[in-house]
Amino acid sequence: MTVAIVECGIGNVQSVANACRQIAPDTVVVADGAALTAANPQRVILPGVGAIGTVLANLRGREIAPVLERLVRGSGVPFLGICVGMQVLADVCEEFGSHRGFGWIPGHVRRMAPVVSRVRLPHVGWNTIAATWPDDPLMRDIDGKDAYFVHSYAMDCPREFVLATTEYEGVTFPCAVRRDNIAGVQFHPEKSSLIGAALLTAFIGDGLCTNAA
């Protein structure tokens, strides 16, 4: 089982790689399209830290986006986006301007609340995952548990793609989304202790084969 971790920004992918290696020793970190093709992975994880515009520009500039398109949308390889890696799935992403996302899951990424508001942002810390599809293999072990979040932007998408939601200071947002073999989580499984390990184990182990959608 080869798991490819796509490095696309300026953030730290080592913690995701460390967490995955515990589950799948054949975890590789790739930073461009050629390396991703060469890895021929059975699972792809896109961790995202940093500004979404930079992440998208790097994914396209390093020829990663077309390889992902072929592997994930063409061949159906299970895909998991983390944080900004989930947000790039949307059509439109607003952060320091407006950016065109992958559009793999129809949706819109916006700041969770206006800059001048009583909502304390970024949303940093542990918060509860409330599954809308509790029987989904990704949700089975983590529904109702706490995961670690760090973000100010969140994705809005049609209900049918929302696996789970989280509430923060009166704002409810999708914390996990899924469309067939494509999934994304807003929280950080690699920083969420045992709950995060459970999610990664479910993704790497079952993949997204048991399709609840």
Binding site: N12, Q14, S15, N18, A19, Y148, V150, H188, E190, K191, S192, S193, L194, G196, A197
Partner: peptide, 11 residues
């Protein structure tokens, strides 16, 4: 930092 981070499953 690397040594700490390898063991850290938390922020």
């Amino acid at each position: 930092i690397r040594l700490i981070a390898v063991e850290c499953r938390i922020p």
